[in-house]
């Protein structure tokens, strides 16, 4: 019974509804239109980076470096377009170039992770952990730990006005979903996550596919950085630093397995929705930062337990 409930694709959406129904009446403002729009806006960056993480998890890996990539991309983009001393300050092409640079920063870091994991065959955990430390260190060093303000207003709109941000996130999500379900690369990523040895025997270019998944994750972190930087109106070297649990948590709550092979970015959307709603509701109820932290810790443990239950259900 519990297994069937937990395995249902709509289980997490049900949890979200329960959360709203349960906390709504006691939490003034939770169900207001303005708040729901806020929730939607807050979801988008997390959604992007969690979708990338989902790809890596499906391939049987893990990417701990994404939060550092977000900070790196944010700072790189900001440094290019800031109106006070940016490399391309006030240049008409500054914003597009900056956006491109942010994506490029994510792409390159992801690619470097992928090369170390796929071809040097190092443990994904250590590789992405050291790149987390190194990249965030470099970012802080590069900025002297200072925020980069004075970004061109044209850029803010990307993160602050809902339609462009929504369009970007939806586009990226649709693309990732199509890649995973309708392209050869998606099938290959699933196969590598299920059983890399079988995949190899069947002619799947396993190292290439592994590297690809980390590159996608890096790219998605770069895209998330665009939205986050736009919302914050500054490039920050510590941007995204506290997002790690939410990123992996959203994927796992959605139903993506930590053991590879099973996952779906649409499921991750409901995971992100749940965590964002939870965060929002707890904040609205005036709970302090640390209580929210503890609740999230419990939630991730429950989600992981749920994952174990689901896997057992599958094996029977």
């Amino acid at each position: 019974m519990i297994q069937r409930l937990a395995s249902s694709e709509f289980f997490v959406l049900g949890l979200c509804a329960l959360l709203l129904a349960g906390l709504g009446p006691f939490t003034p403002g939770l169900l207001s239109a303005q708040n729901l729009v806020n929730v939607l806006a807050a979801m988008l960056p997390l959604l992007l980076v969690a979708a990338g993480q989902t790809v890596v998890l499906i391939g049987g890996g893990i990417d701990l470096s994404v939060t550092a990539i977000i900070a790196l991309a944010s700072v790189a983009g900001a440094k290019i377009m800031t109106l006070s001393g940016g490399w391309m300050a006030a240049h008409p092409a500054a914003v597009p170039v900056a956006v491109g640079a942010m994506l490029l920063a994510g792409f390159l870091t992801g690619l470097a992770n992928g090369i170390a994991i796929a071809w040097l065959r190092m443990s994904a955990f250590i590789v992405t952990l050291t790149s987390l430390m190194a990249v965030s260190g470099l970012t802080v060093w590069f900025t002297d730990s200072k925020n980069i303000a004075d970004l061109p207003p044209g850029f803010f709109s990307l993160g602050q006005r809902l339609p462009p941000a929504l369009g970007m996130a939806a586009g990226a999500l649709a693309l990732t979903h199509l890649m995973l379900t309708r392209s050869i690369y998606g099938r290959w990523i699933h196969a590598v996550g299920h059983n890399a040895a079988t995949a190899r025997v069947s002619g799947v270019p396993v190292p290439l596919i592994t590297a690809l998944s980390y590159t996608i994750s890096g790219l998605s972190a770069g895209a998330a950085a665009i939205l986050l930087t736009g919302r914050l109106e500054t490039g920050s070297p510590v941007l995204g630093q506290t997002m790690m649990l939410d990123i992996i948590g959203a994927a796992v709550i959605g139903g993506t397995s930590l053991f590879g092979g099973r996952g779906n970015v649409l499921w991750t959307v409901s995971g992100v929705l749940f965590l964002t709603l939870l965060d929002n509701a707890l904040n609205l109820r005036g709970l302090s930062h640390f209580v929210i932290m503890m609740i999230k810790g419990v939630v991730i443990l429950l989600a992981a337990g749920l994952d174990v239950v689901r896997r057992r259900g599958q094996e029977e």
Partner: peptide
């Protein structure tokens, strides 16, 4: 529960 995720959860519990 995978050690990584279990101790990530207790990390947040402990810090909180």
């Amino acid at each position: 529960i995978a050690a990584f995720i279990a101790t990530l959860g207790t990390l947040w519990l402990g810090r909180g």
